[in-house]
Design a protein around this nucleic acid. Sequence first.
RNA 1: GGGUGUUUAGCUCAGUUGGGAGAGCGACGGCCUUACAAGCCGUAGGUCGCAGGUUCAAGCCCUGCAACACCCA
Length: 925
Amino acid sequence: MKGTFEPSLLEGALYAEWESSGHFAPAGNGRPFCIAIPPPNITGRLHLGHAFQHTLMDALIRYQRMKGRQALWQMGTDHASIATQMIVERQLAADGISRDAIGREEFVNRVWEWRDRSGGEISQQLRRMGSSLDWSRDRFTMDEGFCTAVNEVFVRLYEDGLIYKRKRLVNWDPVLKTAVSDLEVDNVDEQGHLWRIRYPLNGVLTSSGADHVVVATTRPETMLGDTGLAVHPDDPRYRGLIGARARLPLVDREIPIVADPHVDPEFGTGCVKVTPAHDFNDHAVGERHDLACINILNADASINDNAPAAYRGMDRMEAREAVVANLTRLDLLESVEPHALTVPRGDRSGAVLEPWLTDQWWVDVKPLAEPAIEAVRDGRIRFVPRQYENMYFAWMRDVQDWCISRQLWWGHRVPAWYDSQGNVYVGRNESEARNKGGVPDGTPLTQDADVLDTWFSSALWTFATLGWPEQTRELERFHPTDVLVTGHDIIFFWVARMIMMTLRFTGDVPFRTIYTHGLVRDAHGAKMSKTKGNVLDPLDIVDGISLEDLIAKRTADLTQPQMAAAIEAATRADFPDGIRAYGTDALRFTYCALASPHGRDVNLDLGRIDGYRNFCNKLWNATKFVLMHVDGDDADSPAPLGLADRWIRSRARRLIEDVERAIGEYRFDLYANAVHEFAWREYCDWYVEFTKPALWRNEEDAQAARAARRTLLAILDVLLRVAHPLIPYITETLWREARAASGQTPGTIMLDPFPQADDLEHDAEAVASIEWLKAVVVGIRNIRGEMGIASRVGIDLIFQAGDATDRERLRTAESLLRRMAGVESITWLTADEDAPPAAVQVVGNLKVLVPLAGLIDIDQECERLRKTISRFERDLARSRGKLGNENFVTKAPAAVVEKERDKVRDLETKLATMREQLARLNAAP
RNA sequence: GGGUGUUUAGCUCAGUUGGGAGAGCGACGGCCUUACAAGCCGUAGGUCGCAGGUUCAAGCCCUGCAACACCCA
């Protein structure tokens, strides 16, 4: 094995080979295991959040594949109706083309062209992350089969009365000129104003004798559509006015004053204007009191002809100024003051949304929600972590009807047709609609112009990707899928709707477990956004990027170009040297290590990635070491295992057990930590060092050397396979080298069985002996470190006291001890023999003495001893205190009490030894 | 306003039916020890947000408060 660890040299070629060999497709006869990828939008590039999610899914898939299951990771992409249409429109606009100019058909063609270009980029990024997706089954939410599924679902829900068309208030985006669902509304706290306006009364006076009432509003322009005033029925200020009439200023319309218990007497003056056509609450009030509903807005939120001529054609904000100016002129404006309010904005366009009365298609969600709630309640679907279940229940219990039509061109067109009288015919296609409606062939029908909400199609994801509505083999085999890995931000958008639709149409759940992870944030915990200029492309971490390129990337195409300077400064501060090439494995390992059990957000810190890249390097070098010593002959010639060999096998067994448990609980952090800890702290730091004496004395003890070589190789093999789901590239590379070195023809680690704990025996005696040895070695190193004894200086070690076990352990481990602690000679004294002045460590009943002569400063050692003694004294006092407490002794479990007694005995022994040693040193010349 | 979560070492975070406070990074000191300086050896550092309560025993359970984050209205 040559060279150093260089991720870029091994990743690309390996993936291409895996893919072309067909290893990503499910194979074998094992129990099926399936994950459907949350389909990335075709709109853009993968971000760090995707990469995080895909790492976790790939780890699960690779693990299950190695466990022998038929593992399918279903690939696919989402057409992302609004987002995609916006992007393509923007690109056309840059060329001076408007969507209206080229027409619907041509526009949709352009989007398909764009999708064919852009979709490839996403797949390349997914491949670079090592994702073992089954590309041969790639799906798209607008491919032919998916369109069939969408129409099928629409028609069946319509026939069951769960889809209906109705004129209702919707959230209207006046920039995109489409309805959006409640979930697509961002409620943003903003600073605005509260205007108090006088509405003259018609023939009555208020209780205080005024000829008008004052109405407070944050949106004065909507008064053009007012059709009433409302007060609380118990509000004494207005009791006499209920049923009376007021005159609407500027419009000169007579409007009634009604009493409604939903009016908040505390807000403003306690008397509110009612605009049923432009406010959800007012709409409800209007319906309760039979008030007229006057729409004053056009689709672009300009004022329409239902308003007085003076305002027609004005934008709503312009109209607001005009209304306020005119009220002022008429002396009807009592006051205006700053006021904090919540403004509804479209999550895509950012535009202020208007409640607007339009014809839309709706899903009656309640009947779908009940079985979906039940599926989670009875445990057929499990959330990990658990707490998201509450959020899910809360939302589902109070779920509102879902507006699924969008006034867009890109998406699934609503499968409904109209004749010239406006009668509607719903069918899987035009001819079915015509037949079912009994419409003669000669009568022209026009299809509904609207498309469906993107989430309507993605709600069918798990079963439509497997072939539904046809009853395919894949559907039978892989559905329900096993686990959904997703962010908590789309539980309502997507997860809940998948559960509802899947239960309805397959009679089963879409998945058994929902693993929700947090969002990936930057190292400071800030949400990544293009506007803030703190986004990172996962591939820039994999491949590295220079500072200047990163700045250029972050400041390109900004919607707010004035931010460029600040973004550049922040980028320079965070990445003074740009980003080095960490490789995919290091990034993946970092993601797993940071995947917390609480599903909370992940702050991605380059320092962490750096550490895990070093870990990959460590694996590389460890393998290099092993292969330097291995020769193919060992494979078939067993040799009795030495102490260290038996110890590391016991440890490897525990590694497998720990990892199995961790992945079963979706504890990717524990998985990563277990691998890291074992590979570095046990295999490299101790076991590799233990083998060196044997390897170097090959001539004298060929058996021991062979046992060491075989164990080095066997455990490396286990380690690489255990780590493979996390870090696929380097493990595949090293595993092949290792297999080749032992004379085997390697296939792929991907399909090699995951190690089984039962193939490795636990040897309690070996573990105890090595733990003893480590305690002695660490004790000596501690003295070396604190006394500044260089490692090249050999030590003439003295053991004193101790028992037969200590002697036996020294006998079996002496050569290891000499090597690990730099020991020249070992002398064993009985407890009553005189030892020369020395620094001491106590291991059980055994004193480990490092003689001072020429090496150690007596005062320094005394100081060290005093420190240790006082620490032990504190511990001892606390333990004695506990044991002195009768309640503790009688009420605590016997095991706990006994443990405390052991501790006291141990501390007493150590303290006695150290005090004696201290006295001796103090007496020394 | 309602809900959920978080608060542990300088930083990022673990802490598994309540039983001796941990890791990584960073800091400090020492090492070019024949796999690895992307390394090796060692050291320091915490009133576990605050105040109560339950218990022989609380980072963990209960109550209240504070700060922060997110979801919903």
